[in-house]
């Protein structure tokens, strides 16, 4: 959408990254100075510069591990989106179904994944599948809860209009409920995206050995055993950057889809 040519918006609005980036530079500078001046050994706390060097040196090791973790995260996120939205569709079709099943969705949410991951890893032979399953379980609930809420948050007037025109259930779902729910759906996606990544890492921690395909969590564990703390931090940095990238991508999708009609995304 075209932005209004208003008299010079503040710097923070024109460059939304400026403040967080400035803060990062400040923080990293202080960290670097402290580690250098206090002469802290790298196996206790590596300096940012040392971490960056390790990231480059161990790239051959970290890159495949990163890709494994990203694949598991994306698969888990996709499964959670499809499954969660289908469950939400079913919930709005029938109050009975929702009343009967929603407590179990909550149960799923409050059960710690570390507690059930070993079981899943025993039950499911293929290690990648079991990791995807664990991460999906972690990411599922926000999608169910937000989508259900969104599908119910429909303007009563429009609902009456659809009823008046004799709209079929699927027409009401597809043309009215789903578009109305989009802001909620995207909120659910953004929360679940981060959770899928956390789930993928935690599940691999529990699994210990990833078999043939080892992800970043395995690299962190290995680095810990070998007291290679800089590499541990490098792996951690990769996980963090991945999470931020995913969140930004989902926010961009949300902005694009809501632009021009929803209050949250209309240019002020």
């Amino acid at each position: 959408m075209a932005t209004r040519p208003s008299p010079r918006p503040p710097l923070t609005e024109r460059l939304p990254w400026l403040l967080p980036m400035g803060f990062a530079v400040l923080l990293l500078g202080a960290w670097q100075a402290w580690v250098t001046l206090a002469d802290i050994p790298a196996f206790l706390l590596p300096s940012p510069w040392r971490i960056a060097q390790t990231l480059v040196q161990d790239w051959a090791l970290l890159w495949p591990a990163w890709w494994v973790t990203v694949k598991i995260t994306l698969w888990a996120f996709a499964c959670a989106v499809v499954l969660g939205m289908l469950i939400a569709f079913a919930f709005v079709q029938s109050r009975w179904l929702e009343a009967a099943l929603f407590p179990y969705a909550v149960l799923l949410q409050v059960t710690p994944i570390v507690a059930i991951a070993p079981l899943i890893i025993i039950w499911v032979k293929d290690p990648t599948t079991s990791l995807v399953l664990c991460a999906t379980l972690v990411a599922l609930f926000p999608i169910i809860a937000n989508t259900t809420q969104g599908l119910r948050s429909v303007s009563p007037g429009l609902l009456a209009y659809f009823e008046l025109r004799g709209a079929k259930r699927w027409q009401t779902l597809w043309r009215l409920r789903l578009p109305s729910a989009l802001p909620y759906v995207f909120t659910g996606w953004r929360i679940s995206g981060g959770l899928a990544l956390i789930g993928a890492v935690v599940a691999e921690f529990v699994a210990g050995t990833g078999g043939t395909a080892t992800g970043l969590a395995y690299q962190i564990l290995q680095s810990g055993y070998q007291l290679d703390i800089p590499r541990m931090f490098a792996a951690l940095v990769l996980i963090t950057l991945t999470g931020i990238a995913q969140f930004s991508a989902l926010s961009a999708v949300s902005r694009w889809a809501l632009a021009g009609w929803h209050d949250s995304e209309v240019a002020r």
């Binding site: 007037g157 429009l158 209009y161 008046l164 043309r175 009215l176 578009p179 109305s180 009609w261 929803h262």
Partner: peptide, 17 residues
């Protein structure tokens, strides 16, 4: 239904469309 139309007090338009 085909022969009648109803206009509500509010415009009841779909904001996304």
């Amino acid at each position: 239904r085909d022969g009648l139309s109803f206009v509500f007090q509010e415009p009841t338009l779909m904001p996304w469309a």
